[in-house]
Design a protein around this nucleic acid. Sequence first.
DNA 1: AGAAACATCGTACGGTGTTCGTAGTATTTG
DNA 2: CAAATACTACGAACACCGTACGATGTTTCT
Lengths: 259, 259
Amino acid sequence: MEYAGRGDPARTMALLWDGVPPAPRRGPRPRLDLDRLVDTAIAEADRTGPAALSMRSLAQALGIGTASLYTYVPGKAELLELMVDRVVGAQPLPPTGAGWRAGLHHLATEDLAAFRAHPWLLQVAASRTVFGPHVITRYEAALSLLDGYGLPAIEVTGCVAAVESYVRGAASAVVEAEQAPARTGSTDQEWWERRLPYLTERMDGRFPRLDALERAGGFTVSDTTLPYTLQRALDRFAYGFDLVLNAIGTRIAASGSPP
Amino acid sequence: MEYAGRGDPARTMALLWDGVPPAPRRGPRPRLDLDRLVDTAIAEADRTGPAALSMRSLAQALGIGTASLYTYVPGKAELLELMVDRVVGAQPLPPTGAGWRAGLHHLATEDLAAFRAHPWLLQVAASRTVFGPHVITRYEAALSLLDGYGLPAIEVTGCVAAVESYVRGAASAVVEAEQAPARTGSTDQEWWERRLPYLTERMDGRFPRLDALERAGGFTVSDTTLPYTLQRALDRFAYGFDLVLNAIGTRIAASGSPP
DNA sequence: AGAAACATCGTACGGTGTTCGTAGTATTTG
DNA sequence: CAAATACTACGAACACCGTACGATGTTTCT
């Protein structure tokens, strides 16, 4: 999942920003266009899981030979970048004029939805920021949400970065909860029924705080440490995001200028 | 980097919680012990990068045959889990009695340090929570930091989860900034000098907010979107973490009971 | 018609995690 | 003491992976 940034920057930048270069004059027509390739790759990655996308299976899904892929794309790393920017491009931008809080909320909700629909985003985007047009457009929109409230530039970028960081981290917990059954090949209940005996035996009495939580709030160990219930994970996402928004609100209030 | 949770849970749990099982009575003595194996794996992963750890190279570093590794560990997935729990076990626990803020600050600082020292943690821990004794001990300690302030249980777990989510997301930005030069094989400056011409040409005039930031605050595009300067990334980490802590403080204050 | 430019793709290379079967060794048993 | 036993060690092989190379076929321009 690393695929160091091999290809020369010019080629990658051109693919991201200009799409496919002008059609060449000679030789046989390409059977594919870049859009179809990237779309198929996204669908395939969604279907088969994050790391399971292989150039061979992608080529097969497209009905072409494996080596032919390299006519369109320098390598897998660049393909992944194109996939990221394309997914981001499909997200709606936050509404302007509804206030910073509604705007950031919209942004985070869309991001969470994208991470859930395309879990591989978490692994790709975690290792390197993609410098595509849609990614930057979205970042620009996020910055403008905090414009006009008197926040200094350094704080605007800081707040947006904080939101992005939190969303990425919390979304990965949500995705984990959502994917746990599929990955283990069994239902949540089976998964826990098989592990709980070992855990309870080992944990017995050694973790008073967790025990207290279990007695007081009806949390089981499985519920607190790893919120395997999707609903619990979503609740946590919302709770923590509210914390972040509240903190941003305090900074805005402290900066003087009203909305 | 997926390595679905193959091995049976009993074996994995036993490895995590009980260490190596009682020494067998017959047959040749094992040449290795589990601790040495895991330690070497950690060192190797630190040295060669996240995904570059291979069972073959690890075996070579240990001076044994590749297949022999599977005598000690069911597979790579389980080995990675052992590595995670071992790293977490090496972290100091937050001081009790210094207050929740100091405690959480200590926790986050140590986590960030661990992510920087072992970048592969971000990719391993992102996909599944490791249920090892040290991980749970650390979680227990985090919970107890917020004990006694009158926060309801659901909020205690919510706040700890929020901190963890933020730290994971923000740390990945820091690590990205720190590793960028090594990954691209060139210095920051070279990397940007090669890409900036293409970027500025494409971005010219299309992103007024970013342009304004550049004019006003001395931010370059490279500085805002991807904080390739390590110092800037660290500043952002601290700023956002302060936001989260402030929000938690507000919740605590609203819950009545003083420290 | 011939040359040049291009897409296609079978094949091969060096890597990966893991399995299998066998060889070897130390303890326990008869 | 010898034989059975239970264990470690590991070379070889399997099924994959991303990618480079070179041959082949197709289209367009001269």
